[in-house]
Design a protein around this nucleic acid. Sequence first.
DNA 1: AAGACGAAAGTGGTTGA
DNA 2: TCAACAACTTTCGTCTT
Length: 308
Amino acid sequence: MIRKTIKECPECASKNIYRDVEKGETVCRDCGLVIEDRMVDFSQEWRDFDEDGGGASKRRTGAPSSETSFDRGLGTEVGTAADVYKLSSNKDRDRFNRLRKWNIRISTAIERNLKVALAELKRVSSFLKLPKSVEEEAARIYRLAVQKGLVRGRSMESVVAGALYAACRRHEVPRTLDEMGEASGIEKKEIGRTYRFVTRELEISIKPSNPADYIPRFASALKLTPESQSKAVEILEMARDIELTSGRGPTGIAAAALYVASLIHGEKRTQREVADVAGVTEVTIRNRYKELIKRLKLSKIVEKSKKK
DNA sequence: AAGACGAAAGTGGTTGA
DNA sequence: TCAACAACTTTCGTCTT
């Protein structure tokens, strides 16, 4: 059964909203937004325990909906105002209206939450100077997360940070977890956790990040010339071809490539300097550096450049 | 004295039984 | 659910410039 609802689409403000009762979905026919993806099954709420009750003594079972259904009913609309007249008894009508009222209250709470969350998202995003497209992607992800009730048990801020991190990765403008942590004030452990959780639950697939994506930002932070920068990218490509990059942290490899490039071009940076901007330790750079030199046979070139 | 190097032990996350 | 495991970090001592 498909029915028109009296709802207004939060996305495009159209009133062309229809609900598919079987699938438990409410969809905007103008912009395609799925307004809800879960529906509370009210048929379980009242059960007749009396053998001869004839429906007169229906009781509720289980905990009240205010405790159990608060998040599960997220974004659910309980029928329409017109539905109330289909119910026979006054008692049922009262209950119906109560539930409906409850639901409206919850919906506005969600919208309030979304507003606050989007403000936070905007703040963090501008702090990191992220492009608009990433910000919008993150907002989309967050909205989906709320609709699926994934924010439960997590702080709103951490989900925002996780959504932003995911959006960055998708748009191939990765930020490190450290940077995200600094911008949002959330521990990077926590961000990583929610990031993994949200992407898994929403089935968002993300390619493993490419170390080369980090190069431009790190290079400019180190004030390296464009020549060194492209040299670093070149090194990365060679490293990738012999599968030196897989399995390792992308930032460590990017940092090592930059370090080598800086040596070759005679504008040396210390391991510590490179380590700081890349957010890894010197040790990691050393390990990657050793591998690069060995496997790519760069030792001669580096030696030569050192003497000059 | 500062930077580079390497060894050893510790941490947090993934994987496979 | 737990143990093995790989990547990375922390810490610290030694060598090089």
